Amino acid sequence: MLGIFFNKTLKISLLFTTLIVASTISTAVNAQETPQIFGDMKIGHKFNPDPFTVRGMSGGSVSGKRIAGRRDTLTGPCQGFFDRKPDHTLELTDKFEYLKLQIQSPEDTTLVIKGPGGSWCNDDFEGKNPGIVGEWLPGTYQIWIGSYNKNKYLPYTLQITEVK
Rank of each mutant, 00 (worst) to 15 (best):
R70S: 11
Q102I: 10
T17A: 05
N30V: 01
L74K: 11
F52C: 04
R70H: 07
G118D: 00
G118A: 00
T157M: 07
F16V: 01
I113E: 08
T18Y: 15
K11S: 08
G139W: 01
W120M: 13
L137M: 11
S58D: 05
G131D: 06
T18L: 01
Y156I: 01
T140L: 06
D124F: 04
K46T: 09
K128T: 04
S23C: 11
K46D: 14
Q159V: 00
H88Q: 09
P35G: 10
T9D: 10
I20L: 13
T27Q: 14
D108M: 14
S147A: 13
P77I: 05
G64M: 02
T93M: 15
Q36G: 06
E126I: 01
I132R: 03
I43V: 15
Q159S: 15
D83W: 12
N122M: 14
C78V: 07
H88G: 07
V54K: 02
T34Q: 11
M57V: 00
G60L: 07
T161E: 08
I143E: 02
T161M: 12
M57Y: 11
P49G: 05
G44I: 09
A28I: 08
G80Y: 00
C78G: 02
T73D: 00
K11L: 03
R71G: 06
S63Q: 10
L158H: 10
T24A: 12
M1G: 12
T93L: 15
T24R: 11
T53I: 00
G59T: 02
A31P: 02
T17Q: 08
Q102M: 04
E33M: 12
L74H: 04
G127F: 02
N30C: 13
S58G: 04
L99T: 13
E97H: 11
E162I: 01
